[in-house]
Amino acid sequence: MLNIDLDRESGVPIYLQIKYRIKEFIKLGIWRKGFKLPPERELADELRVSRNTVSNAYKELEEEGYIFSHQGKGTFVAYQDNIGYQSFDNEKLINIVDKALDEALNSGYSLDEFSVVCHTRIEEKKEIIKNFKIAFIECNNEQLECFLKRIELGEGVTAVTVLLDDFKKNPKSTNEILKNVDIIVTTFTHRDDVKQLLQDKNKEVIGIGLAPPADTLIKISQIPNTKRVGLYCNSHNFAKTVLKSFKQAGIELPNLRTIISKDPKKIELINELDVIITSPENKKEIVELIEGDKEIIEFSFLPDQGSINMLNTTIVLLKKYSRNKH
């Protein structure tokens, strides 16, 4: 019997409650790496929810790298410790350094020798990623801005941004731009489209997973139905993506209105609202437009830690390959 308490009156989607509880089990080490999770149907029966609800929770946990599924064998915990967190884990890094230091001292090297080698290797790693070029391709500018702000490119790495619609309309000129980049990054949703449009079929195209922060979804799910809610975006594409995420999370906002920044009546429309959902990039504009006290909820899609790790590793490997090739 699992200790998963569900609050069916909180307004928080049930699948999110299941997801967070499982995350706690993993973070606390209750469920360690390799632990087999209950089958979806079994857990659904135990919690008296639909199998689809459990499936949604497992799906997001898998996308974030917490668990993995093996066909015919079941679903297992993938990692433990600091998975899924982008915060710097100082203690873990110290343990890694201490282990290497102890091994060096036991092998007869001095502290000064260890320090010199570490410094040299750090400088070599910096050189590896120096002048590396990445292209980010997405269907809307808001998501492109999020890419650049949320992913730490590192020293010497430069980025090019391309709208997917522009790529489709002007494939020749866009391919000319992409000839000079080392790697292309897009979401899993658009990866196949990008690969089809790309002339250089040997160019590396990395798909990354994006999802809105859980606390943002919870906050939105708890907005009373009596409130007049607005979604303020720069493009219809971004609005569609946000609304899709609401639907997947089981969030219903009966009084939701979508407002595009180009709308000449946007000031009037915004000031009719009680709650405004917008991207971090648009928040400053909203603050200047609103009259009176209105709640503003920042909404963005963040790359999961697994995608960030994969991207960083790919950058280093590709740069090494490029240097060896030349």
Rank of each mutant, 00 (worst) to 15 (best):
L61V: 12
N282Q: 08
S173H: 09
A249S: 14
D89F: 13
D304C: 04
N3A: 09
D274S: 10
L61G: 12
E204Q: 10
S235N: 00
Q80G: 06
E127H: 04
N175H: 01
Q80K: 07
D5A: 14
V194C: 02
S55R: 13
K266H: 11
L111W: 01
S50P: 07
G209S: 10
E127G: 03
L111E: 05
K265S: 11
N225P: 00
R8E: 15
V12N: 05
K73E: 15
I14V: 15
D102S: 08
S69N: 06
N255H: 10
S279M: 00
V54F: 04
V194M: 00
A239D: 02
D89G: 05
I260E: 05
S221D: 10
P171C: 13
G65P: 01
N180F: 04
L318T: 05
V162H: 10
L178N: 11
E295Q: 12
R32T: 15
V54E: 03
S107W: 04
R228D: 11
F246P: 03
N202M: 06
K266C: 07
A239K: 00
S110P: 05
L197M: 12
Q305V: 13
L93T: 09
I259M: 14
D5E: 14
N90W: 10
K201F: 03
L317N: 04
K203G: 03
D215E: 11
N312W: 13
I30T: 14
K23H: 15
V229A: 10
L2W: 14
T216A: 02
T53A: 05
E9C: 06
D193I: 12
G84M: 06
K19I: 14
E40S: 06
E103N: 08
T241F: 09
E9N: 13
T314Y: 09
G306K: 06
K284P: 00
I297C: 08
D274P: 06
S87M: 02
L2E: 15
I183K: 02
Y58D: 05
I14F: 15
W31Y: 15
I286R: 09
D165M: 10
V205T: 09
G65F: 00
V54D: 03
T278G: 06
D81V: 11
G250K: 04
E64C: 06
R51T: 11
K179D: 14
S245K: 04
L101D: 03
I286W: 05
T278V: 03
N52T: 15
T158H: 00
R8V: 15
E281R: 04
E42G: 07
L253E: 08
E285M: 00
F35P: 02
F301Q: 04
P212T: 13
